[in-house]
Design a protein around this nucleic acid. Sequence first.
DNA 1: GTCTATATTCCGATAGAC
DNA 2: GTCTATCGGAATATAGAC
Lengths: 191, 191
Amino acid sequence: MASRTGDTREEIVRLGMEFIQTYGYNAFSYADIAKKLNIKNAAVHYHFPGKEDLLIEIVGQYIQRYHDLARALEAPGLTSRKRIQAFIDRYTTLCDQGKICLIGSVGSDYFTMPETVKKKLGELVELVLGMVEGVLRDGKKKGEFSFPETPRVRALLMMTNLAAGVQLARITGQKDYKAICNSLVKQLADT
Amino acid sequence: MASRTGDTREEIVRLGMEFIQTYGYNAFSYADIAKKLNIKNAAVHYHFPGKEDLLIEIVGQYIQRYHDLARALEAPGLTSRKRIQAFIDRYTTLCDQGKICLIGSVGSDYFTMPETVKKKLGELVELVLGMVEGVLRDGKKKGEFSFPETPRVRALLMMTNLAAGVQLARITGQKDYKAICNSLVKQLADT
DNA sequence: GTCTATATTCCGATAGAC
DNA sequence: GTCTATCGGAATATAGAC
C-alpha cells in the first residue's frame, strides 16, 4: 500500500502526532497506528524501529512547523496584532479538535522521555517563546502594544495561558478558553 | 506489614498521586507502587481492585485538599494578598518537586479516562476556579486588588499560568516559572 | 515495503493458601 | 491483609518470507 511514495511514512508521523495530542504518548501503540493505516505493526517498525524514533521525528516536524510560522510572520505588511493572532489561532485550532499542544502533552510524560527528546523539547520551547517574544517586542516598539512586563515574560504568560487553556477546555468546555483568548488580546491594548 | 492500620492503603494513594504528578497516569503500574512499598502487586489490588478505583480515590483526595484549603482561606484576618499567595504557593511546592498539577497531568490523558473520573475532574476544576474567583472578587471589592477582567476570567488566567508554568519548568527550568509568579502578583496590584 | 510469525516483557487482574 | 502462582492480553520489537 502506497509503496511508490513516502506516503506511509508521513501518515505514520501525522497519526503519531494526532495520537500524542489526543491521548498522550504513553497511551497509544504501534498497533493503533497500524490499524488506522490498514497495515501491520511490523510495517510501522520498518519506518521507525522504535517508538522513540517516531517521537523524535514528530517533535522535529513540530519544530519545523514553528520555524515556518516564524518565517511567515516576518512578512512585511503584517500588523503585530495580526502576527500575535496567528499564534493564538494555532491553539484555537487545536482546541476545536479536542487536542492539546505537543509541549503540554509531552510535558506530562517528560520524565519518561529519552534524553534526545528532552533536548529537542527545549529547542522547541525556546523557538516558540522567542518567536512570540519577538512579535511582542516589535509591537511594543511600534506602539501597537502596551504591556508592563518584559516581552519575554509576556510571552511566557501568553503561552502558558494558551497551553493550559486548551487542556482545561477538555474538562470545562470551550467557553473558558474563548474567555482567555479574548483577555489575552485585550491585555496587549495600545492604551 | 502495617496490617493493624490503614497505612498501606494511604501509602498507595500517596504514591499513586506522586506517580501521576511525576510520570503521568498511563506511565506507572501497580508493580511500581508495590515495589516502593515492598509488597506484591496483589496486595495493591486488594485495596484498589482496578487502577480506575485508585484514580478515583486520588482525585477525591485532591478535591478534599482543596476543600480544606478553601476552608482555611476563609479564616478572618487574612489579607486577600495572603490568600492568593497561599494558592500560588501550592504550585510552587509542586514545581520545586518536579511535579505538575493533577489537572494538567490528567488533562493530557483525559480521553483515556473513565466517565466517573471525568466527572470528578470537572468538580475539581470548578472548586479551584471558584475558590480563586472568590478571593479575587473579595480582594477587588475591598480595594486590595485592581484588575480589568472579571474575577472569573482573572482566576482562569492565573490558574492556567500556574498549571502550564510548572509543566514548562520541567523543560526550561524554574527561572521562567518564578517570573510568571512574580508577574501574577504584580498584575493584581492595587495600582 | 509489507507480510506472517514469533519472542519478550510488562500490565492489569484473579484464585486460593496462609 | 499479604502472599504465591498464574492467566489473558497488550505492547515493543525482530526474523525472515514475499
